[in-house]
Simulated assay, not measured.
Amino acid sequence: MNDTIETILNHRSIRKFTDKTLTREQIETIIQAAQQASTSSYMMAYSIIGVTDSDKKKELADITGQAYVQHNGHLLIFCADLHHSTVKATESDYQNMLPNLENSEHFLVASVDAALAAQNAAISAESLGLGICFIGSIRNHLKRVDELLHLPNHVIPLFGMVIGEPAHQPEQKPRFPLHAVYFENGYKEHAQSIEAFDQTLQAYYHDRTTNARLDSWSDQMIRKFSVPKRMDVTDLIQSKGFNKR
């Protein structure tokens, strides 16, 4: 096993950081690694906002409900970005491009591009001895995040990432067994694998050193999908010129 695979397999979310901020060299290395991710049709349909303003970080922490969004070494916001493609377009060009800019296909392309770049950023940060945590809860109030970052049309914030020097080393959370996510030549039903994983996760929650509880993955998902959540996200996405067709 090489160092890269060991770094990937050792991943865990870090939610407590020292006061040490990332150096400019560290930030640029992480962003350059993100840029080397695969991109559909060379579109590079994403942008990354580094948030250093203390007031903005405080407001983002309030939106997400996560204190570590304010207290970390650096905060990144990953955006789906089709605005890049329109910068040199004439008005006539833009009108011809609009059906593609607004369709579901290119919303998916931009979202996947951003996610691939983010995973490269995460692995590069962890390879430097830093910790990371993805922040999906910026979507608690996506319109305000959009306003706070002054994003133009055809750019939307998708998720954040906090990075920094870890101030704790939490236990690694279990993942599905391989046969629950990898199927050959077609999808396979796998209820037994999920049941086995529920038992694994129950043991993890029971035995971990902090926040022990009785719970399973299936119970979490049933609770999660039984309560409407972030139902305003579709309207914001469409208002910014995405996923309208």
Rank of each mutant, 00 (worst) to 15 (best):
I138F: 06
K173E: 07
R144Q: 14
K188N: 06
A114Q: 08
A196G: 12
V181L: 06
L151A: 03
A117N: 08
N185K: 13
N96D: 02
H106R: 12
H179Y: 12
V162C: 11
L151N: 08
S218Q: 12
S218N: 13
K88I: 04
E171F: 04
G131T: 14
L201A: 02
H206V: 00
N185A: 15
R213W: 00
I156D: 07
N211W: 01
N211S: 14
P152C: 07
I132L: 12
A122I: 15
P157S: 09
P99L: 06
L116W: 03
H106C: 09
N103W: 04
P152S: 02
A125E: 03
Y204P: 08
F183W: 02
D207V: 10
Q199V: 10
T86L: 00
A118S: 12
K173L: 08
L101S: 04
H206M: 06
R144I: 04
Q95I: 01
D93H: 01
G131C: 04
P157K: 12
I156T: 11
V162T: 12
V145P: 00
L108A: 10
T210K: 15
E195T: 15
N140V: 13
G186L: 02
S218V: 05
E195M: 11
A122H: 03
P157N: 04
L142P: 08
R208M: 11
E189V: 05
V87K: 12
E91G: 10
A118D: 02
R175F: 01
C133D: 08
L128E: 09
S193D: 14
K88N: 13
I138D: 08
A180Y: 01
S124I: 06
E91W: 06
T200C: 14
S218A: 05
N120I: 08
P166E: 07
E105G: 06
P152F: 02
S85A: 15
N211C: 13
N140F: 04
E105C: 03
V162L: 05
A117L: 00
H106S: 03
F159G: 01
M161R: 02
F183T: 05
V145I: 15
A117V: 04
L178M: 09
Q169K: 15
E171T: 12
Y205G: 02
P157L: 01
K188P: 02
N211V: 05
A121V: 02
A196K: 13
H141S: 08
I135V: 09
A122C: 08
Q95Y: 01
A196T: 14
R144G: 03
A191M: 13
V145S: 07
M161P: 03
F107C: 05
A212P: 13
H154G: 01
P152V: 12
G129L: 09
Y204Q: 02
P177G: 07
E91A: 15
D93E: 11
G160H: 10
H84I: 04
L130I: 08
E126V: 02
Y205R: 04
A122M: 15
T86M: 03
Q192P: 03
K188C: 09
P174I: 10
V112N: 07
R139F: 10
T210I: 14
P174N: 06
I132D: 10
M161V: 11
E102D: 06
C133Y: 13
S104E: 13
T86P: 06
W217L: 01
G164P: 04
E195R: 05
R213V: 02
S193T: 13
T209I: 14
G129S: 13
Y182W: 14
